[in-house]
Design a binder for these strands. Structure first.
Lengths: 370, 370
DNA sequence: CTGAAAGCGCTTACAG
DNA sequence: CTGAAAGCGCTTACAG
């Protein structure tokens, strides 16, 4: 068989890739026909198609995506810029992106900014920052990506850092307020509301809060959710129950202690992240107060470690996977049709409570609403 | 100015990319010359170079990597296949890869197998497994990657799963015993040796061990390191001090209890991962034994949660970042010169102990060696 | 030092 | 239904 011969000869050449021309010769058709069967064009006769397919199979021919991309001006490649892939949120978001792209013939080219590693705690050093991002964007563009997803290391506004782009971009785990920008995040306010509601449903009326850095977007939004829940359930806001932390475990420890040693201490505490919730557990242990019997506790983030706390922490899980999926979905809509108007510019996905063992039910007088 | 006019006209076209031909016209040279300045060829006159450079700057021209790749048959793209990016080891390894590639003009195209998500606890289901991997490899090859890095989700032998490839591949966080294969991992035996040595140096003579699954490569290698340290320090191996766990926290709890309730209990325990070390802490708490005063404890992996244990856990840190760097370095050596013979086929990097607060010093009689 | 031309491996009107 | 040919945006001998 002639084909076999040629194949065998080609196999001898180290790492030889066949091209469409060689396939067309082996199948005795034109390259156009090979291309047509490759792309499932209906206009090729069944017999011809089968002949070509057989040659492709036998030669294990793999068409060059590169060459195709050059011609069709579409790479089916999306650039993912992550501020820092070692931050807990990022891998899951990438996982979500990847799941979607894989099912749609797209692939990811990753550009990891390594912000924490390079900037340490000066990750807010905007000048360097801008440069890193601009570079990453240029690199991705020269690779002809069809679109870009930008994954923040923590929620904040990065409006105006990335200038007008020839391809669509969507932000996730960060905000951008430009009129044309799309961002997908989770709904901090609703999540806080749900957490408080859960505590109220469990019979708690005196609910302390340890916030993150007071001026952060998240702290503000979550505080709003807290207030709204109080309002809806006709509970009084007691300012003594509100403590502003800094996201670190130690602040949960210190502020937890303050809360728990109040003359009329809260029966439940909402810590705005799991780390600070861990600090509250430390404080409770020191004071000989059992969690959840003495004080109930609810965290935020569903960090891996939270399930190893003693007791395992009830906490709000972030919809990380979904954020990735949603981001890439919006991006792909914009790639195919730039004006698919149905997508939200500022999408906020729901968090879900994961119930573990840090919240206890309290009996409450029947007169209470809710 | 003529250039300006043309540029402005071009800017009007939505998302228009300039190409080398247009640049050559604007600079009044041939495309060959533009290409030469782009590639820093020395054979272009200074004046010409500057003229071209200026046009490039003014137009913000970005050469197409795609087109270049097609011509030079090199994409400077390396394919990264991760078994599961949400597993704790993977992001750091990718971080290391990325750091190296970025400095060498290479980029990463990521293919995440999502094994845990798709196979659940059946991640050893080799049939499906093989398929996923084979697919990923084909996809990466059709994208013309110059090489592949395969990141395992846990150390194990995956020899023979990936067949002969037209591009080099290096494995990390898993083994492949093929004669032509390269793998980079960490040195389990040395790490265990170092951990035990550390305990011995701190004055411990009765050292318990909780291994992972007994038949895993890691457990075996680490057990060897344990034995060797005992031997070197002339300590007797007491079989009662060896317990085989299953990597889960609960087994650390149960086996820790067994160890601590022995008639002559160990004064220190080496748990082969942080999760089981956490279980030992649980056991100690239940028995009213303080860590490290009552029993010293050392873990393995330096998982993020280990620093939140009470007390913060002393543990072996995995050289994840370095593994990524080393893997890509070997890969790049093989890409440029397939026969760079100096690289180890089975590279094992050193772990480093991170000292926290779970190990206490013990006074030991002067007669003891070491 | 510079340019004309061929070619990388595909796709896509277009003609037949 | 099939094929010849042009072209995507680069690079690279080669000639001058």
């Amino acid at each position: 068989m002639k084909a076999r011969e040629i194949i065998n000869r080609l196999k001898l050449i180290e790492g030889a890739h066949l091209n469409i021309k060689e396939i067309s010769k082996l199948a005795q058709v034109s390259t156009a026909t090979v291309s047509n069967v490759l792309n499932n064009s209906p206009k090729v006769a069944q017999a011809t198609r089968e002949r070509v397919l057989r040659v492709i199979r036998e030669t294990q021919y793999r068409p060059s995506t590169i060459a195709k991309s050059l011609k069709v001006k579409r790479t089916n490649l999306i650039g993912v810029i992550s501020e820092d892939i070692t931050v807990f949120n990022t891998p899951e978001i990438i996982n979500g992106i990847d799941e979607y792209t894989e099912n749609h013939g797209f692939h990811i080219i990753l550009n990891n900014l390594r912000l924490y590693q390079r900037l340490g705690n000066h990750y807010a050093d905007t000048a360097k920052y801008r440069n890193f991002i601009a570079e990453a964007v240029q690199i991705l563009l020269s690779r002809q990506v069809d679109g870009i997803i930008y994954i923040g290391a923590h929620s904040r506004d990065i409006s105006g850092i990335i200038e007008h782009l020839p391809v669509p971009i969507v932000y996730t785990y960060c905000y951008s307020a430009g009129a044309e920008d799309y961002a997908v995040n989770y709904d901090d306010e609703a999540a806080a509301y749900d957490a408080i509601q859960y505590l109220i449903d469990a019979g708690h009326r005196k609910i302390g809060v340890i916030s993150g850095l007071y001026d952060s977007l998240q702290s503000q939004a979550r505080f709003k959710g807290y207030q709204r829940a109080l309002l809806d359930y006709k509970l009084l806001f007691n300012p003594a129950y509100l403590k502003a932390g800094d996201w670190e475990r130690e602040s949960g420890h210190a502020l937890g202690k303050e809360l728990l040693t109040l003359p009329d201490p809260p029966t439940a505490i909402f810590a705005m992240n799991d780390l600070m919730a861990g600090g509250v557990i430390d404080a409770a242990n020191e004071l000989g107060i059992a969690v959840p019997e003495g004080v109930s506790l609810i965290g935020f983030d569903n960090r891996e470690c939270s399930k190893f706390f003693a007791p395992p922490l009830t906490t709000m899980a972030l919809p990380l996977n979904e954020m990735g999926k949603q981001a890439v979905q919006i991006l792909m809509n914009r790639i195919v049709g730039p004006q698919s108007a149905t997508d939200a510019h500022d999408d906020r996905l729901k968090c879900t409570l994961v119930e573990r063992q840090s919240v206890a039910k309290r009996v409450v007088s029947a007169a209470m609403p809710g």
